[in-house]
Amino acid sequence: MMTYIDYKDVVPKAVIGLVVLLILLVPIITTNESTLSILILSGIWAIAVMGFTLVLRTGQFSLGQAAFMAIGGYTSAILTAQMGWSFWPAFLLAGLVSGLAAFLVGMVVLRVGGIYFSIITLSLCEVIRIVAQQWESVTRGARGLITAQPNPIPLGFFEINFFSSTVPYFYLTVCLVAFTALVFWRIGESRLGRSFAGVALNPVLAEHQGMYLMKYRVIAFTVAGVFTGLAGSLYAHFLTVLTPTMLGLWQSIQILIMSIVGGIGSLVGGPIIGSILLYTFGSYLTRLDIYGIQQLLFGAVVVLVLLFLPKGTGLVDLWGRFWTKVIWREKEFEMDEAEE
């Protein structure tokens, strides 16, 4: 059903270096607010998509990931807007609360698999939205909460000020994306991540080889919950307002589409490629002045990717295929020579 390809050999260090360099140079290349904002938002989605993909690695297809963003977002928005906390502790608590929610929910619902799990998570996602909409005394309902910008970080003679420019927020997002990527990459490489494959590919067999299915599913779901919550907090504070409809079922579907289109073959590369490309594509389309064309093209791209890059290999596989063709061959050649 799913194929897992190890991309660690296929991503040369030079490419990673180039990406890091580009990220460092962003403020020099552009300080255009809307470009930065697209990059920031794709980064935020990338974190949520990585979370979704991690859960998918254990064979569970969650349609409620946006709910964890909402939980994280509302936690820090309520703490800052209603209770006068400053951003940083609220941000960290957002991850914790969301992770705790994921843990508790996961303990109950992860024993169910397949389409049943998807519908359960979808329902819980809607419940969260309705609660956010109706619990006016805390969430201000449909009017939404106005969220605070992060406080400045003093660094001696210099301070990082989030009010005067978007660049610091961009780097904040980059840091979180990088940290998430690092953690998820290690999980993928470790015994834990490899065991996920067993749980996903054949739960009955995995159980009879000594894997406690719930353990792996709950771990994946909780870790995803923590990072998705942090992403939700970043999302709420970047957009300065958080309303119930900003994080609902549609966003959950968006997360899953980004994951599948990006490719589930890798825990990090696929989600990042998928969310950056689809989000950027989507936001450039909104600038076209024809109603509906953005959805139409977005939908068409999704279907085309599924048709031509089947089984969730996704866009990241284009990359993989390229390197397999160009670099792999040389390696093989060398091996042959060595044997002779």
Binding site: I253, L256, I257, I260, I290, Y291, G292, I293, Q294, Q295, L296, L297, F298, G299, A300, V301, V302, V303, L306, L307, P310, K311, G312
Partner: peptide, 19 residues
Amino acid sequence: YVGVATMGLIFFFEGAASM
């Protein structure tokens, strides 16, 4: 993946209908 494709089609048909 068929499920995801039909999710993509949601956007496609809503977009087409809007146009």
